[in-house]
Amino acid sequence: MTTEVVNQESAHNAHHALPIARLDNVRTYYPIRRGVFSRTAGYVRAVDGVTLNIYPGETLGLVGESGCGKSSIGRTLLRLEDVHEGRIWFEQEEITHFSERRMKPLRTQMQLIFQDPYASLNPRQRVGELLAEPLRAHRLSVNAEIAAEVDRLLELVGLPRSSKDRFPHEFSGGQRQRIGIARALSVQPKLIVCDEPVSALDVSIQAQILNLLQDLQKELGLTYLFIAHGLGAVKYISTRIAVMYLGQIVELGDKNRLFDSPRHPYTKLLLDANPVSHPRLRVREKVVLDGEAPNPASPPRGCRFHTRCPYAQAKCREQEPQLDGSIHAAACHYPLW
């Protein structure tokens, strides 16, 4: 493993440190059960052979259409899903088959922020209690210090101290997301998987939360895996970006290079699908990505994108392209450049 990491490492000149987390050829499959005996009739291949390094202090953006497996990658990394194949490392330690007991101390190191914080906050607990709970569960603070720690967390995410006596429903969507962030931060994690953290929020509030996440990263030295389908938010917050299609990463590179000159036709079409920022930039006969992604239970042979790709050729139907090892990597037989 070490040599592999080092090789990847030399490709990423920008990152001098070893990855904080690593997925190595990971496959996460969900069984499809049929019939009275619930026999397994096949698998939804949510994550199908993904290798990914996440470096300390970076924000790795993960984009793709719904159902492409981006949330599954986040959950697999946190060991919330069982892997079918492949290996997972966290800080140079393989955690692929760690028991729940061995995972527990690591749970403080990696946290998850959800799209809908309301669903993850117990409606019958006051905010103060919600924030104190993880501190007690992981024995991070002695009782006497908990109140002070809760105050510090609230201040960190920009909520008034009086919030601790209120219930989650008394807060707006943006404030609830702040509570969700405070709860994730309470255990002092190193890595946070942000799964669509701003998708459900109003535009003016999205900007507040994106700025907050960025400030916290600087202040606390956090690493983010930022999962979203909104390309604008991803471009704004990320250092590098990985583009997913049907369970696989098709392009991976520095955000500005990837957005300015994508190599994979899918990335190009995904970017083109994003609405313009001014009416004068409208394209009259816009090339629109046709159809929808095929069923991940039976992905197409060869390149998975060939059924929708305007440039597909015979080779694409037969042979599966691999992610080339360059700094700006693409999995395509005929990349755009």
């Binding site: 719904s66 389908h229 909104g230 699908a273 994003n274 609405p275 816009k286 629109v288 990505l289 929808e292």
Partner: peptide
């Protein structure tokens, strides 16, 4: 909807 499908519907 996804941005790709959004583009299709708007068009």
């Amino acid at each position: 909807l996804d941005v790709t499908v959004q583009a299709q519907i708007l068009q």
